[in-house]
Structure formats: C-alpha cells, structure tokens
C-alpha cells in the first residue's frame, strides 16, 4: 500500500494533545487522592477484629476489582441520574475512578500494615503509647514508606485508565486524539504520536517517582 506521511498536520494540533495529557494526569491524581483516603479506611476495616467490618472491606475489594472500569463510569454518568444524582462528566469519572482506585489502595495499605513486625508495635506499647498514638506515630508512617513504590505505580496505572474518560467525551488525550483523527484522517500519525505521548508520560512519571522514592526510602 502507499501512504503519504504527514506529521505536520498533527503537530499543528499538539497543544490539544498536551492539554488532554495534563487533564488525564489531573484526573488520575484526584482519583488517587480520594482512593487513598477510601483505601485507608477500608484497610483498617480489613485488619480489624470485627468480622462485619472485615466482611465489608472484603466485599468492596472483590466487587470493585472484578467489575470493568468502563461499566463503573457508565453507572456513575448514565445510571446515577435514575436516582436523581446528577454529576458532571469529570465528577462522574473521578467518582468511578476513585472507587476503583480505592479497592486497589485497600489491598496495598492492608499489605503495608500487615508487613510491620508486631515487635515494633509492642515496643510502642511498652513505652506507654495508646493504640491511637501507635497507629498515628508508628504504623501510619512506616506503612506509607512501605507502600510508596506501589503508590507511584498505581498513579501511572490510573493515568492510563483516564483514557476511558474519552467514552463520556471528557477531552483528555485519547478523546482529543480521536477528534483529530476524525478531522484530519491522518490515522497513523495521530495514533503513533498519541501512543508515544502516553509512553513518554508514563516513563517520565516513573523516573520522577523513583527519585522521590529514593529520598523517602528507609535504608
């Protein structure tokens, strides 16, 4: 087949793509933050002595992990209005992605909390700290340092998931790429550049996160 490459048409629209990239990153960051708060509560429920709390955490994680994100997005955006809850596009998307992220965060935090040797907690008890003080001063900071690498990886993974926001016409990278594709018909160029942008963004994020991690690491 013969194909006449023309990257210039797409590069003329590069700002549209870069804006989309930034929007995707912000959506991912917001969802990660909310997901972390949710995940922390659920992780505490998951390791609590109360069987009902444990059951709730377990159910939440299984349900969310085994349901496609796209279905969650549609439930949030098209389904919730049936209950007279009307969220904007971005709000619906962040709602769905946060719930989704929360399930993964629950697992990450639970593992991070369980990885702390009990002896260290006993040492806290031995100097007279209350359970709440032990949680706040010992468990939480150690857990965060334990899970920092996974948090970074999940941020990248959520960033990739933001491409699904295109399905409800949020103008992030994938949506804008599709738009340029329809406008210009430069199929190969558009998708090559879009894929490249995603790859570069992911590896750049990974690189920056490694550096942050190294600064926080417990040697």
């Amino acid at each position: 087949m013969r194909y006449f490459w023309n990257f210039n048409i797409v590069f003329a629209q590069i700002n549209l793509l870069l804006d989309g990239l930034l929007l995707g990153f912000l959506l991912a960051l917001a969802s990660l933050m909310i997901g972390m708060a949710l995940g922390l509560f659920m992780a505490l429920a998951a390791i609590s002595k109360h069987p009902l709390l444990r059951g709730i955490a377990r159910f939440y994680v299984t349900l969310l992990r085994n349901t496609p994100l796209l279905v969650l997005i549609f439930i949030a955006y098209f389904g919730l209005p049936d209950l007279h809850i009307r969220l904007g596009k971005s709000e619906s998307f962040i709602f769905a992605l946060s719930l989704y992220a929360g399930a993964y965060m629950t697992e990450v935090f639970r593992a991070g909390l369980e990885a702390i040797p009990t002896g260290i907690l006993e040492a806290g008890q031995a100097i007279g700290l209350t359970p709440l003080q032990i949680f706040w001063n010992i468990q939480l900071p150690i857990m965060f340092k334990n899970v920092l690498p996974s948090l970074g990886n999940y941020l990248i993974s959520l960033f990739k998931d933001t491409s699904l926001a295109a399905s409800i016409t949020i103008p992030e990278l994938t949506y804008n790429a599709k738009k340029i594709n329809t406008l210009t018909f430069r199929v190969f160029e558009v998708w090559l550049i879009t894929a490249a942008l995603y790859v570069i963004a992911c590896y750049l994020m990974a690189f920056i996160l490694r550096r942050i991690e190294r600064r926080f690491a417990i040697q």
Binding site: D161, T174, V187, A195, Y198, V199, Y203
Partner: peptide, 16 residues
C-alpha cells in the same frame, strides 16, 4: 506504557 483503549484504537484504525 500505552492504555489498553489506545492499543485498541491504534490497531483498529491501522488495520482498517
């Protein structure tokens, strides 16, 4: 490094 959806779009449009 590429979202699954972008892989789907890319391959679909390329092959098409």
């Amino acid at each position: 490094g590429i979202p699954g959806l972008v892989v789907v779009f890319t391959i679909y449009y390329f092959l098409d």
